[in-house]
Design a binder for these strands. Structure first.
Lengths: 148, 148
DNA sequence: GTTCGTGCAAACATTTTGCAGCGTG
DNA sequence: CACGCTGCAAAATGTTTGCACGAAC
């Protein structure tokens, strides 16, 4: 099975991948799961459980928070979203395509989140993997900054 | 006022710095605050609110969790400790001297935390500061790894 | 004596769990 | 029809808040 998403994937592609994973794992393809996936796809940047809950409610596709938590766990385990602990009161998520990775700068004064990529950092992490004989499963690189 | 701690500072040095900051800010020098500071000094590596609560209780210096939360906030604002959100159920803290900084590798299989320093990373962060015209107030760089 | 801090209990917020009933396959 | 999923309510957890009493200065 092709488990990669292209760089600017459509909802159909995202949905199809989710569908095929559910199928393979013999999990139910419920309408709630696809409504949640749609809400995620339509969200730019980071979101929380409440973001999705409110968005779905306002679109008359209300689902319980329990189900949102469940679905987000599933999606995380399938690498269709990423979970971040930036330190606020609740976890933040973002959709991801598996072909790219990026890190975060948080502007403290405004709570703005900037995403950035840095190839030197990727190389550095490879070096660290070799030095310590480790395989990095997930990295968290976040700079909390003030504007100069 | 000298606000730096030397590399292998004694408790007396740590305590004295805390004392002087409290003095300057006209905050009370309560016995609870110094008991908590002692417990932190005596802890190697990372700790949580509960770590300190239990440690103090077992030494017959019981203080309330409210006071521990208060004191940890104070110490964090004075840069005498650092707070981390690694993503577990609660925040982790560690004491710090202001002259050094390091990052973390978490071994997923064992929950072991390895501290490491990398000078290339420090340089890279300086470059990022320049590129984006930012001043980094705090950084979080953590690699979640499996052993190879 | 005034201000500040402590500690209790309650409030709060996020997340997890138990379970009855329903939907998917 | 068997099993998995949803959603409600309750529990669990970590953290914050309000307040009365006591300690620091």
């Amino acid at each position: 099975m092709n488990i990669e998403l292209s760089e600017n994937y459509s909802f159909e592609e995202y949905r199809s991948l989710f569908y095929r994973i559910l199928d393979e794992k013999k999990l139910n393809k419920t309408s709630e799961r696809f409504h949640i996936l749609r809400a995620i796809y339509d969200t730019d940047g980071h979101f929380t459980v409440n973001t999705l809950y409110n968005k779905l409610k306002s679109k008359k596709y209300q689902v319980s928070k329990t189900t949102i938590y469940n679905t987000l766990s599933l999606l995380e385990s399938f690498y269709l979203i990423e979970k971040h602990n930036f330190g606020g009161s609740c976890a933040q998520y973002e959709k991801c395509d598996t072909s790219t990775s990026h890190d975060h700068i948080i502007i403290i004064d405004t709570d703005e989140i900037i995403e950035f990529k840095n190839e030197k950092l990727n190389l550095l992490i490879k070096e660290i993997e070799d030095t310590y004989k480790l395989k990095v499963a997930r990295r968290a690189f976040t700079l909390f900054c003030h504007k100069k």
